[in-house]
Amino acid sequence: MKPLNYENIDLSKLETELEHFQNKWIAISAQNKIVSSGRTYGEALEKARKEGEVVLFRVPPLDAYLAP
């Protein structure tokens, strides 16, 4: 399986898909593809078990600026 190179992870290329995952965790593969999602980190990771190395991201609401 392809090792994950973080230089290749580019969320701007997933822009259209991200819309559907607001407030959810997603798992992103080495090919910069969303391979699973879930309400929790654990749920998204469990669904991505067969996908090799992944990195997880919690998609924030996309209709607002952030000022934590």
């Binding site: 580019d10 701007s12 822009e15 607002a64 952030l66």
Partner: peptide, 21 residues
């Protein structure tokens, strides 16, 4: 680490529809 650019549905500046974080 490169910033990650995310779309934001509102923007006072239409030339920057994505926010780099």
């Amino acid at each position: 680490f490169p910033y990650q650019k995310l779309p934001v549905h509102q923007s006072p500046d239409p030339s920057t529809p994505r926010i780099a974080r």
